[in-house]
């Protein structure tokens, strides 16, 4: 059985301007110990998906429907008390902005300790010991000294390490990392990605990586789910997604990303692929394919019938009537 199985997830928000369908019929699985990346541009629903899994969506104005099966239990059916036991213990989360995600008036040791004391009932001394252990694990030098420091005394990279230490303190089965390196500089990002790869082999948690950065996806993920307008448009292994993308949106996205080393091959400047137009409004029900308004190979069928997510080859799911054609085009 998969560790996490999301089925037909719908997360909608009631706003003054109407209902926003942020996530619309999303299904995917994460196996134990696996790294799955959820990729898409801003507003595609990837962060809302992670918040929905942890049930951190405020209801109202939000509303979650569908199934989120975690180790065989549907999280959407659990009472709040049970859900609180899962959050931070079985499923933990790393956020994008390490400064605002840490409490500025508590020492980092206290903040790591809080989680383990809550979930594992450790004493204050034991919790501090665990804090030092965790800080050492995430590669913070002199952890005995650092546990007594406050977030503002740490650099951005160090804070993100503390966030990771907090997330891993209770040995979670699933770690949700929402843009974990977006706010960091590239050399610090390299450190954190390195750390996450290293920890993954040592801790064995599954990682759900949410990002817009295809470079980070290629470095970290085993499987990739590409989202557009709240829907899954393609899912495959990382090698398949980057080597043999099927959906026109995935292809457009990959073409739009400049690759380091491009100047070494060609002469002069090359044009990047553009995806014309803009993301459709999520306030109306979209009839037909959500990508139809920007798709280079759109036909009338696409405008009338929303494509089902189908396995084009084993393990490679695409939501496009013209998947094969897209490859040929």
């Amino acid at each position: 059985m998969a560790l996490l199985e999301v089925e037909n997830l719908q997360t909608h928000f009631a706003t003054l301007d109407g209902v926003v369908r942020a996530v619309e019929g999303l299904s995917f699985k994460i196996d134990a110990g696996e790294t799955v990346a959820i990729v898409g541009e801003s507003g595609c629903g990837k962060s809302v998906t992670s918040m929905s899994i942890l049930r951190l969506i405020q209801e109202p104005p939000g509303k979650i429907a569908g199934k989120i099966n975690f180790r065989g239990r549907n999280l959407l059916d659990l009472p709040d008390v049970e859900m609180r036991k899962i959050r931070g213990k079985d499923i933990s989360m790393i956020f994008q902005e390490p400064m605002t995600s840490l409490n500025p008036v508590l020492t980092v040791g206290r903040q790591i300790g809080e989680t383990v004391r809550l979930h594992e009932g450790l004493t204050a001394q034991e919790a501090e010991k665990r804090g030092i252990e965790m800080l050492g694990l995430v590669g913070i030098p002199a952890p005995e000294r650092r546990v007594k420091e406050y977030p503002h005394q740490l650099s951005g990279g160090m804070r993100q390490r503390v966030m990771i230490a907090m997330a891993l303190a209770c040995n979670p089965k699933l770690l949700i990392a929402d843009e974990p390196t977006t706010a960091l500089d590239v050399t610090i990002q390299a450190q954190i990605l390195d750390l996450m790869r290293d920890l993954k082999t040592r801790v064995g948690a599954a990682i759900m990586l949410i990002t817009h950065d295809l470079g980070v996806v290629a470095e970290m993920a085993e499987r990739v789910v590409v989202m557009y307008a709240g829907r899954k448009v393609e899912e495959a292994t990382a090698v398949q997604i980057f080597g043999n993308p099927q959906h026109p949106y995935t292809r457009g996205l990959l073409g739009a990303v400049p690759k380091l080393g491009s100047s070494l091959q060609g002469h002069g400047r090359t044009k990047l692929t553009e995806i014309q137009g803009q993301v459709p409004s999520l306030r109306q029900r979209i009839v037909g394919c959500a990508f139809a308004s920007r798709c280079p190979i759109v036909t009338d069928v696409c405008r009338q019938v929303a494509p089902a997510v189908e396995a084009k080859t084993p393990g490679h799911y695409v939501a496009c009537h013209y998947a094969e054609r897209a490859v040929a085009a």
């Binding site: 037909n8 719908q10 997360t11 909608h12 928000f13 009631a14 301007d17 109407g18 209902v19 619309e24 019929g25 509303k63 979650i64 429907a65 036909t299 009338d300 069928v301 009338q304 019938v305 929303a306 494509p307 089902a308 997510v309 189908e310 939501a319 009537h321 013209y322």
Partner: peptide
């Protein structure tokens, strides 16, 4: 005619299952 030209017609393709309204429309 356009559907013919594209080689696919509405009947040929697999449609995504219809989704319910989770929240009442405004």
């Amino acid at each position: 005619s356009t559907l013919m030209a594209s080689g696919l017609s509405v009947g040929d393709v697999a449609a995504a299952p219809a989704l319910p309204d989770v929240l009442a429309p405004r």
